[in-house]
Design a protein around this nucleic acid. Structure first.
Lengths: 198, 198, 198, 198
DNA sequence: GATGAATGAGTATTCATTCAT
DNA sequence: TATGAATGAATACTCATTCAT
């Protein structure tokens, strides 16, 4: 019946979705979360508005998926580092922080995370899902903290709480990086991990 | 006409302005920065839209003034603590963090600060002013850090950088507090200042 | 506090509402129910789109109110005739039918009535309200039927059922009147009431 | 290529067309005339949108053809009854009305007929064609009326006018039948033809 | 023929801002 | 000063139609 190649269609679809999500986070990070419009995103992705709605049913869905993908990528990176066998824990923490701080787009994820969790108009189930993913992503970091404590490299304290403060500090720093309006203080992973060194 | 009336008028005006700014931050913190409308704020302040425009010339001005007042209050509090003579530096840091974390509205200031600094559509001079106030507010905190280092209470390092990381950590933590969607980790000033203890 | 005249404001409001409802039924009757847009109605009413939304919260509400007003007017006219003491019942039926058929806009009410009752996307409570009003409006007509039967002027049968067929016939006839595309049969109240004469 | 294939192709095509028209009237009768979309109809017919456009050049054409087929079917049924030799005229009227009222979809044809004839945006030639078919369809009904008058079974009056009122009454009654929101009056062919009995 | 992704004009709705009273 | 009705530009979303595969 179908003269189409179903497999290829699926691959094209996946590429399109990624294209749109990339465009979305780019626009959000330059225009701000509230001011990012569907037509801005469509323009950035080089597709029409109609096509956007072919892949996403609403602006909210796009934003939710952008955030979800960001959280999943971030969780994957944390899990990879936690499972890695040869790198010392402090180096892992350094790598993770450096990777996050290197991308000037990441502050946008922090804002979106916060907006999704605190804005009353966001449906409760989405707020819960975002919170759950955030909490789940703390686990691998906590494992790294615990490993480091076992080796005597990392300061004492509940590993989960340490992970939480570590992530909060990274997010707090991310927010300070406005291009062109830098604060006269260096933001670097070296200084950051010093707070967690034993 | 009489000086006493002019004086009274000025006082009434100032009260109105504060009333509106209070309403604005309340609405922003509950509905989110992007969704806060002029009519929401007017309703929260118990005045009409027309009256709002007697005191502020635009929505952007209201937002800018909300943020400015927040930054000034915050700076004043930091300066008071820095100048205080009897309290040990670590206790000052504890007090400051506890005060900030206690108010569930403060995350909204963090979001506004960030939005103002990173959104391209915000005029450059406002972005600069916000950054300047942020930088200035680091100074009293840095002084406290330096005092603590002199007494051997606080860890080594550039006091300004320590202040910056301290503030970033507070802001990062503030963002995690979504009412009803708490993360199973306690957020408290005790745990926070431990990172700065010598 | 208010420098406005509350009473006058209310009167202006009521006038505006009527103006909009008038414009709406006019547009609906010329462009069709489905093609009548908010901007068409605003243009016909000589006001801006924003003003429309000042008085009505949605297009659906406008349509519902147009229909409601039509049904209430129609019910009022039926009740007045039923209560009238001197006119013979058959003359009342003639008057009512003639009045309805005289207004070339009335077919639009019939279409709206039908659309509201049969379209699945219309909320059930509105569908029920429309049906209830329709049913209620049958009562005065049924009373006229009964009076006529008592005098031997009107054919036998359940008065409510007679009323129902009478109204259905009027509505069916209304639908046939397309301006410019007339059917070569006269539509008049005389012919209509003959079916109900004893 | 072979005549037999061409013939088969034609039959397949005709079946497809009927399938689409059936799907269209089903969707229209459940979602309403204005809300019926091409993709709804394609889904209901179990074919793709692209395929729809192989058989019909536009949405308007589909609607026009749905209505045309409905009118032709209806006219055919009327002609068959008129030509039938053994059935008494009143029974014919009863049969015709009962057949029409039995199908809960028929109200949609009445709405479409009306919309096509009164909406200004519909091309004049289509409006004329619809009117002409409607008028033509009155002829066999008028013949039945005349036969009945000859036998003394049916009331006096211009047969064409009687036919017109008869059809209008059927259409008016059809409109009242909203599923789930019935009016407490029975709608039946028995009651209907009584109005035409001598 | 069959498919459904792509397009963009059109529509409902919101909201900052103005201004007559 | 205070009010809130009026405005219209901006924005999310829909859907008939086209066309490459």
């Amino acid at each position: 019946m179908s003269p189409r190649n179903a497999e290829r269609d699926l691959r094209v679809r996946e590429e399109r979705v990624q294209l749109i999500l990339d465009a979305a986070i780019t626009v959000i990070s330059s225009k701000g979360f509230g001011a990012a419009s569907i037509s801005d995103i469509a323009k950035a992705a080089g597709i029409s508005i109609g096509t956007m709605y072919h892949y996403f049913s609403s602006k909210d869905e796009i934003f939710a998926d952008v955030l979800k993908r960001g959280q999943l990528d971030y969780g994957k990176r944390a899990a990879e580092l936690a499972d890695e066998q040869t790198m010392p824990p402090l180096v892992k923490l350094h790598e993770f922080a450096a990777g996050w701080l290197a991308n000037p787009i990441n502050w946008a994820y922090t804002i979106m995370l916060q907006s999704a969790r605190t804005t009353e108009t966001v449906p409760a189930e989405i707020r819960q899902a975002v919170t759950d993913r955030f909490t789940a992503n703390l686990q691998p970091i906590a494992r790294i903290m615990k490993d480091g404590q076992g080796r005597g490299d990392i300061i004492a304290g509940d590993p989960l709480q340490l992970a939480f403060y570590y992530v909060s500090l990274i997010q707090g720093l991310t927010l300070q990086r406005a291009p062109g309006f830098e604060i006269p203080v260096s933001i670097d992973a070296d200084a950051l991990i010093r707070f967690f060194e034993a």
